[in-house]
Design a protein around this nucleic acid. Sequence first.
DNA 1: ATGCACCCTGTAGCAACTACGGGGTCAAGC
DNA 2: GCTTGACCCCGTAGTTGCTACAGGGTGCAT
Lengths: 136, 136
Amino acid sequence: MKIGELSRATGTNIETIRYYERIGLLPAPHRTAANYRSYGDPHRARLTFVRHSRDLGFTIDEIRSLLDLSDDPGRDCSEADRIASRHLEQVEDKIAQLTRLRDELTRIVGRCRGGIAADCRVIEALGDHRHCKSAH
Amino acid sequence: MKIGELSRATGTNIETIRYYERIGLLPAPHRTAANYRSYGDPHRARLTFVRHSRDLGFTIDEIRSLLDLSDDPGRDCSEADRIASRHLEQVEDKIAQLTRLRDELTRIVGRCRGGIAADCRVIEALGDHRHCKSAH
DNA sequence: ATGCACCCTGTAGCAACTACGGGGTCAAGC
DNA sequence: GCTTGACCCCGTAGTTGCTACAGGGTGCAT
């Protein structure tokens, strides 16, 4: 299949596919006589893996490691579990941080009574960290 | 005060302070005879405002608008409330998205029994979206 | 033969910094 | 008076993960 078809099949931007090839995340496919890229099912599977991992928030480097593992089926796979676990931890940290942030924003928002900026509690709160209830 | 002192006073990297000046977020301060930047209290307050807003996740452009408002104390400040409210919504969306993601990762992690990559459930799950319980 | 959709390459842009190279300034200590 | 070290200056390039051109070639239908 040509790049446009692969793009539609995986929901990936064409430019992104070429980008992944450039950085070595996807192997360079064969070319037709007209120099068009020509992909097969293994390419599609690999790109699906990459997109899914990206959707789950893995970095390109993490995906590289995960792909290395899956390319080498005899290898011990506890590494994959470690990468995923560490990532899960990061996601949990990020959720906790955003939750604190949301609480702080909730306290700030809505305090404006439509007056003038000089009296605005929103602007005041942003300028002075001491108004905050928790670290963020 | 010199830039290093301002840096320590606000917990901001020196390079970041110069960057903020370059993009016009902070006004250029006076210079000493040796061409060193020399800051006063208004600079420190403004930088504190910027850092606090950044910590809360506001973009530079949003901060620019918020600063414009606070520079013009006679202006109607409902704009500030609107910016903060929209940002709060974005944070809530992000939390919801990360929570779905966390649930999916939790399902994936820990399914590896320390075997070889060919049998790894983590790698399998990443390669096949159909294993997923929800959209992400 | 002329549209039109599709493909190619290479480069530059985005956000918000961070890091570096190569240099100038200033006070303290010998 | 000279060195050492901490501090400052500027300009540019790197980071992450794409996305958006510009300027061209290909393939098929009308």
